[in-house]
Every structure is written in C-alpha cells, then in structure tokens.
C-alpha cells in the first residue's frame, strides 16, 4: 500500500520537479564525495604554512577582522595569527545612539596546535596574545567643561556633539578546535577563551567610556571577559 502510494505520488510529479530533484541529489553526492576526499588521511596533502580568514561576529560591532595566519617554523605546530581590524558605522540610534563611529585595532596571537605531526593546522590548539583597539565616537552628549570667569574656575555641564577617543588594550587566552576541509584548504575555527580589557578615553572626566562599557563586546569595556566565536578562512 505504501509503495503503491509512493509510486502514485511520483507519477503525479511533473518533469521539472523530478529533474530538479535529480540534479540536487547529484550535487549533494558530489559535495559529500569531494568533502570526504578532503578529510581522507590516505591522500598526502601539501603542508600549509599560511592562512587568511575572517571572524564574522565582528559585524555585530560594525567591524571587520581579517586573520592572517603564519606558521612560525616549517614543520612545527607554532603559528602566529595577525588580526588587523577596522570598525566603521554611521549614526546608530537603535544600539548606541551615536552620530558616527570609526575604529581600528590589531590583535596578535601565538597559537600552538596540540598535534605537532599535522601538516595542516587542524585539531585542538591553545592560543594567547595581546590586542589594542582605538575607537573615535561622535555623539550628542552632556559633558563637563572647565571654564574661567573673572579668574574663578567653574565646571559647567554642557550638551554638545562630543568626539571621544577610546583606547582599549587587553590580552586573550583561547582554546579551540580548527576543522579543515575541502582538500585541506578551508578552515572553520571554533574557539572559547578568556581575557582582560582595559579601556580609557581622552575626554575625562565625563567621556563616553562609561556609556560604552555595558558588556564584553562594548567599545569601551574594561574588565575580565569570556570570548567565543568562529573563524572562517582558507589555508595555502
């Protein structure tokens, strides 16, 4: 009965649908075949000494981070990851309520893969390194200004479009797992870690840092944090 129903169902499908299903099946088969070859240990792979990738979650901070991976010494599991970052955003009234923001940063990481025999950087690893970021944020805010009237010093609260530079420095330690696929040329790196950040601004005592210090990913965050994410890139 079930077979009869299925046959009847198939017979009712039009030619276009059947052809689409056939192509989909073929593409899926080729994909899996191609992918399985990439994972295969039997086929020797050329040693990969460089990588380039991005960290998608930086888009939530209006940023773009590019990771440049370099093997420090051929045949060794020690890598250096250089991560330049840029941040750019026009007015953002829904999240931070600023007029404009731009920033730049640099993060360095020494990475050690736990399986030193791998020709390609895959599997579990440990990493650590410093970072430095700078953000310039213009926003309409109250701020304190020191003024002199007849030689007497006052501090007046004013409302104006204030541009504040926020400097952030920190260190991060991570552990992760890098999955390499597509003939050992594409990586998916999943990591989890902890770190510290210290931020200060150039408009004390009433800069914007306190407003941008809500949580770990905030532009002006200070304190300890947990970090987690994914990197996607290519090895060569």
């Amino acid at each position: 009965m079930a077979f009869h129903c299925s046959a009847q169902y198939l017979s009712n499908l039009d030619t276009y649908t059947l052809r689409t299903m056939r192509y989909s099946f073929l593409i899926l088969t080729l994909f899996l075949l191609f992918n399985s070859v990439g994972f295969s240990q039997d086929i020797p792979v050329k040693q990969k000494n460089h990588g380039i990738g991005i960290v998608p979650q930086y888009a939530f901070m209006n940023g773009l981070r590019t990771d440049l991976d370099f093997r420090l010494k051929k045949g060794k599991p020690n890598w250096l990851v250089i991560s330049p970052e840029i941040f750019l955003s026009p007015a953002n009234p829904t999240v931070y309520n600023y007029d404009s923001m731009w920033g730049a940063g640099l993060e360095l990481q020494h990475r050690y893969y736990l399986n030193p025999k791998n020709e390609i950087p895959k599997g579990f690893y440990l990493g650590y390194g410093p970072l430095f970021q700078y953000f310039s944020i213009t926003a309409q805010r109250y701020y304190t200004e020191r003024v002199f009237e007849n030689g007497i010093e006052y501090y007046k609260v004013k409302l104006a479009h204030v541009t504040t530079g926020i400097y952030k420095a920190g260190v991060t330690m991570t552990a992760g797992y890098q999955l390499v696929t597509f003939r050992s040329s594409v990586y998916f790196d999943f990591y989890l870690g902890t770190g510290m950040r210290l931020s200060f601004d150039d408009r004390l005592p009433s800069g914007l840092t306190h407003e941008f210090n809500d949580w770990w990913a905030s532009y002006g965050y200070s304190g300890t944090l947990l970090t987690a994410g994914v990197r996607i890139g290519m090895l060569y």
Partner: peptide
Amino acid sequence: MVLMGSDPVYYYEYKPVFMKR
C-alpha cells in the same frame, strides 16, 4: 544587542555648575 543600549539624551533646561571646594 539590546543590552548594549546607551543612555538616551534627555534635554534639560537647567544644567549644574560645579566648583571645587
């Protein structure tokens, strides 16, 4: 992301003036 919101800007007619002691 809503946790990231900064304080909205309110408009006050009067603003404080401070002096150090």
